[in-house]
Design a binder for these strands. Structure first.
Lengths: 247, 247
DNA sequence: AAGCCTTTGTGAATACGCGCACAAAGTCAC
DNA sequence: GTGACTTTGTGCGCGTATTCACAAAGGCTT
């Protein structure tokens, strides 16, 4: 799961609910796919199926952008693509800096989904001098020392943090000080940022843990194992791992 | 953002709300960090701050697991770590197969957060014969032809799909047929699966698009650009890209 | 042992999101 | 031009999530 850390409330948001915003990219993807197949018009029912959502929800989401459908017919694919892109701000291009060029940073640098949506990688930065200077996906890795320069010169407004956990907060502080107001964080830490800065987090192991929870449920649930002290107070310094084996 | 595709409703869930489940891994991470620093006891206020949530929410979340706190004192870190781990099913270990060993698959294979949470990578698979046989993070990449074998022999119950979009649904069908009931999908497509199978999706470009939306808002919003035909009906086959330049 | 102080656990109020179901609006056939 | 049919846009009710605020519970000091 990913979560927003900042802006718990902000309903001067031009009225578009956060839940809707989160789904617009999904609709956009489905629409692009239809467009490639030469489909000109689509009904809410069809598009909803392609996006994996309820059709009433889809219509309500789209209604927040304005009335772009034709009753009895559906939505014009190309027009809708444009309207959603515009609403999401994808008609302008965004410069992003990727900080941390480990395995994940490399994967991100080569990810095609960025360029195709108007995101331009303005810099790859790393602290490891062994990596600095390497060529990754056609870009040369720059030393972290030049972070502020890269942000200023590239007009970077979004930073992607793919560093180890320990380095993330420090990097975050620096990019924010350099004027970045949106951060996509892959490091497994909760970043703290000043008011007005948006942070979104992607955490691979959290997703797996949520799946494990449901998987366990299907298999019978943790109820198989009784609570240690039935009902009661936390015991002293016990090895809880042993307790599992014992049950 | 990541989203659940299946199980829109399932309130025989032992009563633990989905929103709570999604936060438990975050608490667990914060607690582990405290544990490393040798902290024995933590108040809901402190832990909530570390996890980036409201303290009342934290307490209510934890109350769903039972009463593991001591009034006037707080929660015993080690005990809470154990209880959350147990609830999430992390006290047993889970075998996962990673399908698709591109940049992202490689990053996932080397991700330390898996092993430390009880997730064991039982196989790396790819369709590209040029990659099959390579050694990645101490594992040999196996051909996708042996997918069913790897799943059966490794006792895999969770599949991680990191293939190109076009291959994802096919791979998904195969892993489900082979008995996998939880799928973590990194491919930019909506997977369709039978009832009873959980799918979670992680989409890097969606996260960026959501950030772009908020970033645009801060900068003045898309209202700068007027709707094309003010108020009205979708026009014919126009180049909307031009329309932006014109505004 | 009594009282003060801290912190939990939860009732109650509020906000939010979802999906049904239907009226309004438009198309298409004849 | 008229009527039947399709599909949008949305009012409404329901369940879930979030937050506040406080009583109950326990520890600690004297």
């Amino acid at each position: 799961m990913t979560s927003r850390q900042t802006r718990p409330r902000d309903r001067a948001d031009r009225g578009i609910p956060e839940a809707t915003v989160a789904r617009l990219p999904v609709y956009l993807r489905a629409l692009s796919s239809l467009q490639e197949r030469g489909v000109a018009t689509v009904s809410s029912e069809e598009l909803a199926a392609a996006a994996g959502v309820n059709s009433a929800k889809l219509r309500k989401d789209l209604s927040h952008l304005g009335s772009y459908g034709t009753r009895g017919v559906g939505y014009e694919v190309e027009y809708l693509v444009y309207q959603i892109s515009r609403e999401l701000g994808l008609t302008q291009d965004w410069a992003v800096a990727i900080i941390g060029v480990g395995n994940l940073g490399r994967a991100l640098a080569g990810y095609g989904g960025f360029a195709s949506r108007g995101f331009r990688v303005a810099g790859l930065l790393d602290a490891d001098e062994g990596i600095v200077g390497q060529e990754i996906s056609g870009m040369t890795v720059v030393t972290i020392d030049r972070l502020e320069d890269v942000i200023a010169e590239g007009g970077v407004s979004i930073a992607v943090i793919a560093t180890p956990a320990g380095a993330a907060q420090g990097v975050c502080d620096r990019v924010v000080a350099a004027g970045v107001t949106s951060v996509l964080n892959f490091a497994p830490v909760v970043l703290s940022v000043p008011e007005g800065v948006d942070v979104r987090k992607v955490d691979l192991s959290i997703e797996l843990q949520i799946l494990a929870f449901h998987e366990q449920r299907k298999a019978g649930g943790p109820g198989d194992y009784e609570p240690l002290t039935s009902g009661g107070t936390p015991p002293g310094p016990t090895q809880y791992v042993e307790a599992v084996a014992e049950a």
